[in-house]
């Protein structure tokens, strides 16, 4: 679809974002952008502020400071609904599923399909959910169980299906494969590349270096809430990234590697 080179306006531009919780600086002065058809890895140690930064973009949290533009226009994202209206969908690290509801009810939560009379159209939601979930996991059978009875992997699949079903322009994946087995993880990797080919921009948070090098075009490393380096993936190797994650600096002898 989008064979033309990336247009000059980024899908999303976050500039100088900060987030404080009382005295705790979770995110400090971070800038980050994303272009169509691009996968940008957001990396960092536990508690580095990755989820906070992404939650600010999904409207789940408001920044203490900084601006966000979507498609070149400044926006204020005060609620998850605002972000969705801007075409930003999120797979939360916590999955954000309502335990007593079934897969279809969760998939359409907040965006229920209705009949002509305004009643919930459970049959149609079920059919769509079944199709969306089967794409990700052909063995998904217990669609009518409350999600509290599903396995961690099945729950994660629902969260992923929900984020991609509504045709986002920007997709935030916060550790989307943490609970998945090898075949489902491979499926999500395929899916990521397919969405990327469709021109969707993706932020990927992952601790898995294989995923990062296989999928990402660029990476941004956070350390103690700060952006300590943004690179094209060809310019760094695994050791450079680990050094940034752990120490917050590149190895002393670093020069751009230019594709190994």
């Amino acid at each position: 679809m989008f064979d033309t080179p990336a247009p000059p306006t980024p899908l999303v531009e976050m500039s100088r974002i900060s987030k404080r919780f009382g005295g705790l600086h979770a995110v400090t002065d971070v800038s980050l952008d994303l272009y169509p058809g691009e996968v940008v890895g957001v990396l960092g140690h536990n508690g580095a502020g990755k989820s906070c930064l992404m939650r600010i973009l999904s409207g789940a949290m408001t920044a203490s400071d900084g601006q966000i533009t979507v498609g070149g226009k400044p926006v204020t994202l005060n609620s998850p609904q605002d972000a969705r209206n801007c075409g930003i969908e999120t797979i939360y690290q916590t999955l954000a599923l309502a335990n007593h509801l079934d897969a279809a009810a969760n998939l359409f939560l907040g965006r229920e399909l209705k009949t002509r009379f305004g009643n919930l159209d459970d049959a149609r939601m079920f059919a769509h959910a079944q199709e969306a979930l089967r794409q990700l996991n052909p063995h998904f059978t217990n669609l009518k169980d409350p999600v509290s009875r599903l396995s961690g992997g099945q729950r994660q699949v629902i969260a992923i299906a929900r984020a991609i079903y509504f045709q986002a322009k920007v997709l935030i994946m916060d550790e989307p494969t943490a609970a998945l087995g090898p075949s489902e993880t491979a499926m999500v990797a395929d899916l990521t590349l397919r969405l990327k080919a469709e021109g969707i921009g993706i932020f990927l948070i992952s601790h898995d270096m294989h995923d990062v090098f296989d999928l990402c075009d660029r990476v941004m490393v956070m350390n103690k809430g700060r952006n300590v380096g943004s690179f094209r993936i060809e310019d760094v190797n695994k050791d450079d990234i680990l050094s940034l994650i752990i120490k917050g600096t590149l190895p002393d002898d670093w020069t751009p590697r230019g594709g190994k």
Binding site: S58, Y92, L109, G118
Partner: peptide, 25 residues
């Protein structure tokens, strides 16, 4: 059981934060 507000009532009681993140008011 059949209206959106009913589903939202259930979701809020089930997991309020999840409901909020899903766009439920």
């Amino acid at each position: 059981s059949r209206r959106q507000i009913g589903r939202h009532i259930l979701s809020v009681g089930s997991h309020e934060e999840a409901a909020r993140l899903s766009g439920v008011n």
